[in-house]
């Protein structure tokens, strides 16, 4: 446990910074998210600024990562392998996008919005975890 203390504290700090960014950016507001996706209606471009700002800073961080032998508190970098684009990626992302548009929440903002004490984020997060478990049961069964 104590061996992981630096990792736990940095995860807490990064989560808090991430959540603060979400709150400041307007991403916690499903109406804003749906306004961004409402191309045919009164389009609200603000989420493009959120994504642009995030990708730009992350890209700068990657420049630093390439110069580092290892992370500060871990043995190595856990980056996903470059696999080809497949049907599961496209179909899964489409199902996610459908849910994102219908509810106006994606995983990060839904979790952060739990702090507001409203029913909707709690129902969303509960069902989201259920959806993850359902997926894993279905595909583990198929594989086994």
């Amino acid at each position: 446990m104590t061996r992981f203390l630096p990792q736990i504290l940095s995860a807490l700090a990064c989560g808090a910074l991430f959540g603060l960014g979400l709150a400041l950016s307007g991403m916690l507001d499903p109406a804003r998210v749906q306004g961004f996706l409402d191309l045919a209606g009164a389009w609200d471009p603000s989420l493009a600024f959120v994504l642009g700002g995030a990708v730009a800073v992350m890209a700068l961080g990657l420049v630093l990562v390439r110069r580092l032998a290892r992370p500060a508190f871990a043995e190595g970098f856990h980056l996903p392998d470059t696999r080809p684009v497949d049907r599961r990626l496209i179909l899964g992302s489409a199902l996610f996008g459908l849910g994102w548009g219908l509810g106006g929440f994606c995983p990060g903002p839904a979790l952060a919005a739990l702090s507001l004490g409203r029913a909707e984020p709690l129902v969303f997060v509960t069902c989201m975890v259920a959806g993850m478990v359902l997926h894993d049961r279905l595909f583990a069964r198929r594989a086994g």
């Binding site: 991430f18 916690l28 507001d29 499903p30 109406a31 804003r32 994504l51 996903p80 599961r88 990626l89 496209i90 179909l91 899964g92 992302s93 489409a94 199902l95 996610f96 996008g97 459908l98 849910g99 994102w100 219908l102 509810g103 106006g104 929440f105 994606c106 995983p107 990060g108 839904a110 919005a113 507001l116 409203r118 029913a119 909707e120 129902v123 969303f124 997060v125 509960t126 069902c127 989201m128 975890v129 259920a130 959806g131 993850m132 478990v133 359902l134 997926h135 894993d136 595909f139």
Partner: peptide, 29 residues
């Protein structure tokens, strides 16, 4: 935070987001 969707729709959206992000190995972040 402005939420207009009724709870059953929120629940369905949550299920789709959970299932879809697992299948597609990721989300907006």
């Amino acid at each position: 935070v402005t939420i207009t969707a009724p709870l059953p729709l929120i629940a369905a959206a949550g299920l789709l987001v959970g299932f879809g992000t697992r299948m597609g190995s990721g989300c907006t972040s």
